[in-house]
């Protein structure tokens, strides 16, 4: 803990990225896939609607994007705050 203020800023930035990611995580699965499906029922996708696509395909693709985006941004943040592994 050589530089506490920098570490606090680092942790706050990390928590912010996590929160934004988790909001997207919840919106695509619980939102588009389940609760908001009736609202998306007008958008047709191959014999069914967008909500069905999110529940069976789309949310999985978004999860992948979220994890890779997090890894990339955090590894960059580590370097910016000088807390990366040497």
């Amino acid at each position: 803990m050589s530089d506490n203020s920098s570490n606090n800023a680092y942790w706050a930035a990390n928590v912010r990225i996590i929160l934004i990611s988790l909001v997207i995580w919840a919106v695509v699965s619980f939102g588009f896939g389940i609760l908001l499906r009736p609202m998306l029922s007008g958008i047709a996708v191959g014999g069914t609607d967008l909500g069905f696509w999110f529940a069976q395909q789309g949310s999985i693709l978004v999860f992948l994007a979220l994890i890779f985006n997090y890894a990339w941004r955090m590894n960059k943040l580590d370097r910016e705050h000088g807390v990366d592994e040497e």
């Binding site: 996590i18 988790l22 529940a55 069976q56 949310s59």
Partner: peptide
């Protein structure tokens, strides 16, 4: 459709694992 929970549940957990 009702069993889509298995698809979302068993993949969505990796987001929690990776981030948290």
């Amino acid at each position: 459709y009702d069993n889509s929970s298995f698809l979302m549940g068993w993949t969505g957990g990796y987001v929690l694992l990776a981030l948290l």
